[in-house]
Amino acid sequence: MTVKPISRLGAAFAFAVLLSACDMGVVVYEPGVYKGDPDPIASQQAAAERSDALADRAGSAFADR
């Protein structure tokens, strides 16, 4: 008997910890979904470009006729 019970206990525990990562909710890596961080300048530009169109749309959609 060369393996101490405490080492086995440790190994069993480490295994259990690793096993719990197999939960369906765990997403460690999904191929092909990487995207960079949201770009504040691009966001600014997009918001500026659409703001007129959206304001017009609100005027025509919600005003009482």
């Binding site: 719990s20 990562a21 939960d23 909710g25 997403v27 460690v28 890596y29």
Partner: peptide, 9 residues
């Protein structure tokens, strides 16, 4: 990725 494992554990 780590936080997902940490929370599950």
């Amino acid at each position: 990725a780590y936080a997902q494992v940490a929370m599950t554990v």
